[in-house]
Design a protein around this nucleic acid. Structure first.
Length: 978
RNA sequence: GCUGAAGUGGUGGAAUUGGUAGACACGUUGGACUUAAAAUCCAAUGUCCAUUAGGACGUACGGGUUCAAGUCCCGUCUUCAGUACCA
């Protein structure tokens, strides 16, 4: 019987589907385990061989956990809202829902043939109204919440209203907008409804704000900072400009501290945690207010400059201030003499693109405004400069410059000849020369906070960083010119998109104020439009919908003509961004599809599955998806809808699979002539150049040929890197008459990202057809460590495919099953148990590549041992089944078992089978292994030494010398020194 | 620049606590089977020297610790990823 993988794989995939083998239950005596993949966006191109890598790893783990007695939830779905479907719709007029449906069908077919153990009954699609109903519902919860810094959680907005009614807003400690005017209870109660709503909007966790956004004219949409790369849109590379727009924002900054703290409770890699920590960017310090000294030129108003500093202890070292050129105060404080210079500088910096400013960090530039601020303590005047090293978008857009304590301030001061007063007691700095005078001219800024005492600083003298900071903040508070402050880099996230193919907001507008539609009327379905482009007036695509108004009496979406602003109101035209649906989908899977109607998931389901035990996906989501979903989970927890603080307990980023591109060389002087890598190499090598030149000359007629690399489709190249010339000629018209000098064309190989344009994309469909899903699964794992980037080369798959054939032959020969009840030999048992041990350790460590090698070794050994014992081969099959489930199921059933192998207990390792009676000792001389010697395990140290020293090879090695030292490590090694 | 990860044969990679470097595969070479090819099987395969026996070198580079270093320490270089003057 042959290993007919195509038949076998189809058979078992059908069996699993028919028997719902992998359907998870929400009631079980077994412990739960939730294994999740980052769900895919179903693109039109379908899967390539790199996409399933993470899915295969998580599938192996899920199957392993089932063998280990867990009730496993392993679902899959689609992140099916997104820009590519919309752009396709713009081009073709085809409704995105239709293309999405088609693409999902392709994805499903491709996923099914790889043999994943997904519970498809729980599938989700973010673009499905039954799903986005709950995305809209969560949006309403965000709108109806405010963040109470005192209780450190989000609360119902009603509790805030009660506080306002009773005490006004001065006692409220909330995460909110910065420019809120204080009001009393009486004032609040006297506010009109619109005024009240305006105030509340400044406190809500999702709010409308006029924000300067990154507007991309080509895409007709706003982009988040992380969607812009080098000043152009990440998708499509279109230019981006700044534009003011009213947008929905998410007050994620309210959760900055909890998002940071929560990282300590999850099992993620340090690299990933560091990325999130940097993104959140916490810095502890103080805000300090400087009064600007009025001049004759300045207007009547008195101005103050507020700065944030992490070093309030260095306040006496301030010798100037720097404002960002864009700072709003610049135009108001600049003196008449300096006006021309300042304006010229602002114009100059405005022209410089961000890329320029980045590329050239070394250039120091700035200009004096002519104005001075007053030092809060010394009352000395401090010159105010502007400089582009200060960023308008971070902190307050202004810094108090302490040149002796900050390298950038130091460089700036040095460059412009500004004094650099020293406020560090240099004799306290370890390693610096003794008694160095405090006023000594410094070579560079002293930036360390450790082991240094403050000097020349009035009441801070002699204090260390910690003490001085505390005291400085205290004194600033006394003057009402500052306070302790913690700053976060994390910005609120813009949540509006000017697109069609996304979740509509459950929002309508009364007198310009947003109103939520009652949750009972959800979902608000996407309206039909005749075109998917922004309107001529620049409104989002939903502005084209005719039926897009909210009738408050009927609670229905009605025709726009009925808008009267009394009972019928216009609906929100923006849609939600891509990350909305993916920020909570892991909860949706927890609920059995049959019970999903009334809730986003029932309490029982949420309590049972809690959160994701293992999450596998790409590292490109490190700051987007993984931050936003943590934020939403914390909100849902605060509002009592879920019980967990973090969504993903353990997270692994799988590395990318790269393509192995293939090239031939084209002779530039004779464009129809192509030659191989070997000939080019020969030509470039001085020793072989003459011969190679002759060959090339003969065909091209040129003595000084030059070459260019041409991508060829990797599917035209065999395992020996040899090009199939006829396939190449038939590929494209321009190659039809391609001439080759050699019979064998060896291609040049280079590793590049897998992409259509590089002709190195390998389709899993082809691999499955030629070698089977089990081979694909094994090979993807065999390529290397899961987290690592590694190149795909189809040539290598014959190795794992051959392994599966050998495995098959271990069970089956021409006459059928050859497994019998033979008593296992000692060697058989040893092979089996060392395999059990290694594979179990490997899976627990997510080291799937080494377990594939382990299987190969086991099968090689058992084949050599001619093992036919059921007692050995059955457990071996269970070990392999998470990796190669189809062949395992088939052989399992041939062994006479009913039902699936997938829930059979994992074999138990028994150490007794690995106990050795002897050890092959490596005998080293001066650390170099010269020969091995087999000695009994229980031999004592002395006996080993005696035996080794008496050995003829030892005597030969020593050649009469007397060893200085003999190291014997029983069970390990013998090393003779001398 | 900073942070993180990595650098091992022709290739992918292995070596879990310092103890036989190169497991397992691919590729290559030779052989068996075959009219032939495919498939399958066997053998060799880090580099260099040597007929053999054997020897020298060898885990990016330069030092160090140790009886013993791919593994630990110091310095340098390179690659990849993240981040972008964060006050």
């Amino acid at each position: 019987m042959m290993y007919d993988f195509n038949t076998i794989e189809k058979k078992w995939q059908d069996y699993w589907a028919k028997n719902q083998t992998f359907k998870a239950s929400n009631t079980s005596n077994k412990p739960k385990y939730y294994v999740l993949d980052m769900f895919p966006y179903p693109s039109g191109a379908g899967l390539h061989v790199g996409h399933p890598l993470g899915y295969i790893a998580s599938d192996i783990y899920a199957r392993y956990k089932r063998h280990k007695g867990f009730n496993v939830l392993h679902p899959q779905g689609y992140d099916s809202f997104g820009l590519p479907a919309e752009q396709y719709a713009i081009q073709t007029g085809q409704h995105p829902a239709i293309t999405t449906e088609t693409n999902i069908a392709t994805y499903r077919r491709q996923l099914d043939q790889i043999g994943f153990s997904f519970d498809w009954s729980r599938e989700v699609r973010t673009s499905n109204p039954e799903y986005y109903k709950w995305t809209q519902w969560i949006f309403i919860q965000l709108f109806e919440s405010w963040y109470n810094n005192d209780s450190n959680k989000a609360e119902d907005i009603k509790t805030l209203v009660s506080k306002f009614e009773a005490e006004g807003n001065t006692t409220v400690n909330a995460a909110c907008d910065e420019n809120i005017e204080p009001f009393t209870a009486a004032e609040w109660n006297a506010f009109s409804e619109v005024e009240k709503q305006e105030v509340l909007l400044k406190y809500r966790l999702t709010y409308l704000a006029e924000t300067e956004v990154n507007w991309c004219p080509a895409l007709g949409t706003v982009l988040a900072n992380d969607e812009i790369v080098n000043g152009v849109s990440e998708r499509g590379g279109h230019p981006v400009v700044r534009k003011k727009m009213t947008q929905w924002s998410m007050r994620i900054s309210a959760y900055a501290e909890r998002l940071l703290q929560g990282l300590d409770t999850v099992d993620w890699t340090d690299a990933l945690k560091d990325i999130q920590k940097n993104w959140i960017g916490k810095s502890v310090g103080a805000s300090v207010t400087f009064n600007v000294i009025p001049t004759e030129q300045s207007d009547e108003e008195s101005h103050t400059i507020s700065v944030f500093t992490t070093r309030p202890d260095t306040i006496f070292g301030v010798s100037f201030m720097t404002l960002a050129p864009e700072h709003e105060l610049v135009s108001q404080i600049t003196t008449a003499e300096q006006k021309a210079d300042v304006e010229a500088y602002i114009e100059k910096t405005a022209k410089r693109s961000e890329r320029d400013r980045m590329a050239d960090v070394k250039t120091i530039s700035g200009v004096f405004t002519g104005a001075y601020a007053e030092h809060p303590f010394s009352k000395e005047p401090i010159p105010i400069w502007i400089g582009d090293y200060v960023l308008a978008s971070y902190g307050t857009g202004a810094v108090m410059a302490v040149p002796c304590g900050d390298q950038r301030d130091f460089d700036f001061a040095k460059h412009f000849g500004i004094p650099i007063p020293n406020i560090f007691d240099l004799s306290s700095i370890k390693g610096s020369s003794e008694n160095s005078p405090p006023s000594e001219e410094l070579e560079e800024a002293f930036t360390s906070k450790d082991n240094v005492k403050i000097a020349n600083s009035d009441f801070l003298n002699g204090m260390n960083y910690k003490k001085a900071s505390k005291r400085a903040i205290y004194e600033l508070e006394q003057l009402q010119q500052g306070e302790g402050k913690t700053n976060y880099r994390l910005r609120d996230a813009v949540f509006s998109r000017q697109r069609y193919w996304g979740e509509p907001f459950p929002v309508y507008y009364v007198n310009g104020m947003p109103q939520m539609i009652d949750a009972e009327h959800l979902p608000i379905k996407l309206p039909e439009v005749e075109k998917y482009l922004p309107t001529e007036e620049g409104e989002p695509p939903l502005g084209r919908a005719d039926v897009w108004a909210w009738d408050t009496t009927q609670s229905l979406v009605v025709n726009n003509e009925l808008i009267d602003h009394k009972t019928v109101f216009p609906l929100e035209l923006n849609t939600m961004p891509g990350w909305a649906g993916s920020s909570w989908y892991f909860f949706r899977y927890m609920e059995d599809a049959a019970n999903r109607d009334g809730v986003f998931a029932t309490e029982d389901a949420l309590n049972y599955w809690e959160n994701v035990d293992l999450y596998i996906g790409g590292s490109e989501h490190a700051t987007g998806h993984l931050l936003y979903s943590r934020f939403w989970v914390k909100l849902l927890k605060d509002r009592g809808f879920v019980n967990v603080e973090e969504p993903f307990k353990k997270l692994i980023n799988q590395g990318m699979i790269l393509g192995t591109s293939a090239f031939v060389y084209r002779v530039n002087e004779r464009r129809d002539v192509f030659i191989s890598k070997n000939l080019v190499d020969a030509f470039l090598n001085s020793e072989t150049n003459e011969e190679a030149s002759k060959r090339i000359l003969a065909v091209t007629g040129t003595e000084t040929p030059t070459f260019s690399k041409v991508h060829v489709d990797v599917n035209f190249v065999n395992a020996s890197d040899e090009l199939d010339i006829s396939k190449f000629r038939n590929w494209r018209a321009e190659f039809k008459h391609a001439k080759f000098i050699e019979d064998k064309i060896i291609v040049l190989r280079e590793v590049e990202k897998m992409s259509k344009s590089k002709y190195n994309v390998v389709n899993p469909d082809d691999i499955v057809a030629d070698y089977g899903a089990d081979s694909l699964r094994l090979y993807e794992m065999f390529l290397g460590p899961l987290e690592q980037y590694k190149p795909w080369n189809t040539a290598g798959i014959t190795g794992v495919h051959g392994f599966l054939k050998k495995l098959w032959k271990l069970f089956v020969n021409e006459n059928g099953l050859k497994v019998n009840a033979a008593e296992p030999t000692k060697d058989n048992l040893k092979t089996l148990h060392k395999t059990i041990k290694k594979v179990e350790e490997d899976i627990e460590n997510f080291s799937f590549n080494t377990s594939v090698s382990t299987f190969m070794i086991a099968v090689n050994e058992l084949t050599a041992q001619k093992c036919t014992s059921k007692e050995i081969l059955e457990p071996l099959l269970v070990l392999i089944s998470p990796y190669a489930p189809h062949i395992a199921e088939e052989l399992w059933s041939q062994l006479g078992h009913d039902g699936s192998i997938s829930t059979v207990d994992f074999p138990k390792f028994e150490a007794s089978h690995l106990v050795e009676s002897s050890k092959k000792y490596p005998i080293s001389f001066n650390g170099k292994m010269r020969f091995t010697l087999e000695l009994p395990m229980d031999m004592s140290k002395d006996e080993i030494e005696k035996t080794v020293m008496a050995h003829e090879k030892t005597i030969a090695q020593l050649d009469g010398r007397t060893p200085k030292k003999i190291i014997v490590v029983p069970g390990k090694i013998v090393n003779i020194v001398g």
